[in-house]
Design a protein around this nucleic acid. Structure first.
Lengths: 202, 202
DNA sequence: GGCCGAAGTTAATGACCGTTAACCCACTTC
DNA sequence: GAAGTGGGTTAACGGTCATTAACTTCGGCC
């Protein structure tokens, strides 16, 4: 986890601005000229860096799914054998992502259908692995929870954690640390309720 | 709550199909010809029923926000004075909506920015009132919870409850009743955790 | 100092799409 | 039974937009 100090490449600038714009107005809602303008070049100039508008979206979505999964796997490896701590770690990681990369989180579950078949399959596969990773951990912490219920709970908690972008513009939140803490408690509370409700049924 | 038995009007058919298509591929992603085809008429025929594509989206979004708020207010009036029961009632109502009108729920927080200024303001106002209604109830049940935290929690729980459309196509769920029950428990658990974490701080 | 490739530029192309125009029926209604 | 109207139709228009073509600029590099 080395901090990058070098300047972002033009390619990275473009991806970042494209993510923001796509999140704000939808993939079909922004034109290439706008994306170009956001990084100080004009529309067709983008084609020196990407094969097309689709390619930008694809790279963004694959990147997000990959990062989430990679981060999740890393946490599994680091926190060996303690499901409680691991669940906390996963939650923390997801919250960091949701709070620090809002546009990406928004895109993630919104524009998947705009991808070419092959890219979409790849993204879905990465997403599925990430979910499975959570499901396993959740079921270790709450052994009474059946798999379908665990999976649905994980999806629901993702919805909860990803809700921050919908909060009426940055101002309304109680500060980043407090927000992260609140989200963490909400997520744990939700899982706990699911686990308790199902106890003794296994 | 009288059940409608008469056939839906052409207008209602159009709205329903438009909602489904907008939810699937985004407002800009579907053409009027497609919407027309979905109800058996051809593109421009829609203009006998709506002023334009924008008007359909506007009517959908205003309708959703209005229904949610109206339903919420009704529950407040019906369940007088018992905050616990009222919170359960609100959760139940929202779940019914999320499970029965998936496309609308999806649209609700996704395409708001595609509206004319005036419509957008109206929808936002309705949404805000709905949130405030929940916030009040939540704070009665958990008096220790500060208002910003309560508001953030409510938003987060909406994200949780609205997560069902993201579940990989209808099959994966454990049946409608079980799903509703699970979501209800998850939501209550989340609120409880938020409330407990803040107790004694008021 | 001439070459070259990377990174831009503007102009043009072609597709798509929302909307309007002009026309057509099948009912109802007096 | 003539008239009007609600609900369609197809064809055309105009704008937007992704993409391509053709051309420029400029910083290394042998």
């Amino acid at each position: 986890m080395v901090a990058r100090t070098d300047a972002p490449t033009r390619r990275e600038q473009i991806l970042k601005e494209a993510a923001r714009l796509f999140a704000e107005r939808g993939f079909h809602g922004v034109g290439v000229d706008e994306i170009g303008a956001a990084v100080g070049i004009s529309g067709p100039g983008l084609y020196r860096h990407f094969a097309g508008k689709d390619a930008m979206l694809a790279e963004l979505l694959v990147g997000i799914s990959g990062q989430l999964l990679t981060g999740g796997k890393r946490r599994v490896a680091e926190t060996d054998g303690d499901p409680e701590a691991l669940l906390d770690s996963l939650i923390e990681g997801h919250i960091d992502f949701a709070l620090d990369d809002r546009p990406l989180i928004t895109l993630h579950d919104r524009e998947l259908d705009r991808l070419r078949e092959s890219d979409r399959k790849l993204v879905r596969q990465l997403q599925r692995q990430y979910v499975e990773l959570w499901v396993e951990v959740v079921r270790k912490v709450y052994p009474g929870l059946a798999e379908p219920a665990a999976r649905a709970s994980v999806h629901a908690v993702f919805g909860l954690l990803n809700s921050t972008p919908h909060l009426s513009r940055p101002g309304a939140l109680p500060g980043r640390a407090a927000t992260a803490d609140l989200l963490h408690r909400l997520a744990r509370g939700a899982f706990a309720a699911a686990g308790e409700g199902a106890e003794g049924l296994s």
